[in-house]
């Protein structure tokens, strides 16, 4: 399994290196070679406009990765702030914030992102906004649970008795303890975001036509399933392998840092 994961990572590193070195244009069309099978000049064949599938996959990888990283930063930032405030101060504010969180969780999966993307229209910034709207909830729940746990530990109580302000306690004690669970959560969330982003592009709400995106390529390839099954296979395999790798890293971090295992 490890070998598989590393070879997939290696593949994408090579792809990105080729992109950096040659700076190919993924929109370059060769009309004589429409939907051609894989060969030496175009490794994974060409799509319905005669564009190199490998080049488009690498570009799509870069595009979705950019979006996903930005979304992760935005949603973890707001999620942590809301979660820590809710867990640390408690009371009515906590109840209200928890109600808001459960409300956002009532929209299953990518439904909320679809709703916002549908209203705002397709495009990169709208996509980022739509994905972040549903993304912060997981981080907020995690940050709240962890804050409540840490807040009642002895060393925090001691620091409180010594007269530390709320700000000092949050910055010095609570935020550092959030680091490891957040990295684990964030890694799993990355895998979910790749699928969510591709799903949105698949139903036409993601990046627009000339830009390469995996969801958009998947949608195009399904139309040519009968003529050139290799197109759909390559796009699907690249999404799946990346998701699998990220989940693998999530499991790895989880096992490495799991507090329960350390206590045993």
């Amino acid at each position: 399994m490890k070998k598989l994961v590393f070879s997939v990572c290696f593949f994408w590193v090579i792809g990105v290196t080729i992109k950096l070195l040659s700076n190919f244009d993924s929109n370059q069309m060769i009309f004589d070679e429409i939907l051609i099978q894989p060969n030496f000049s175009s490794w994974l064949g060409r799509d319905d406009y005669g564009r190199d599938i490998f080049h488009r996959l690498v570009d799509g990888f870069l595009n979705s990765f950019e979006i996903i990283i930005i979304v992760t930063f935005i949603s973890s930032f707001f999620g942590v702030i809301i979660g820590v405030i809710s867990g640390y101060f408690g009371g009515k504010l906590d109840q209200f914030l928890r109600y808001i969180t459960t409300l956002f969780m009532a929209f299953p999966g990518i439904l909320l992102a679809i709703a916002f993307a549908a209203i705002l229209g397709p495009g990169k910034f709208n996509l980022i906004f739509a994905l972040s709207i549903g993304g912060w909830v997981g981080y907020a729940r995690l940050a709240r649970a962890q804050t409540v746990l840490i807040k009642n530990l002895d060393f925090v109580k001691a620091s409180e008795t010594m007269g530390s302000s709320n700000k000092t306690i949050i910055i010095n004690h609570i935020l550092p303890s959030l680091k490891t669970p957040l990295i684990v959560e964030g890694t799993y969330a990355l895998a979910g975001l790749i699928i969510a982003e591709a799903s949105l592009s698949f139903i036409g709400l993601g990046l627009q036509a000339p830009m390469a995106s995996w969801g958009g390529m998947m949608r195009d390839s399904v139309r040519f399933l009968l003529v050139s099954p290799h197109y759909a296979l390559f796009v699907g395999l690249s999404i799946m392998s990346l998701v699998y790798c990220i989940n693998f890293f999530g499991d790895y971090f989880n096992q490495k840092w799991d507090i329960k295992n350390n206590e045993d």
């Binding site: 895998a191 699928i195 591709a198 799903s199 698949f202 969801g215 998947m218 949608r219 390839s221 399904v222 399933l225 009968l226 099954p229 759909a232 296979l233 796009v235 699907g236 395999l237 999404i239 799946m240 998701v243 699998y244 989940n247």
Partner: peptide, 19 residues
Amino acid sequence: FISIPHFFLGPLLMLCLSI
């Protein structure tokens, strides 16, 4: 099957079982 997204599993099944 856990890491395979719906929009890939669907075409895959179409390809194998119907085409």
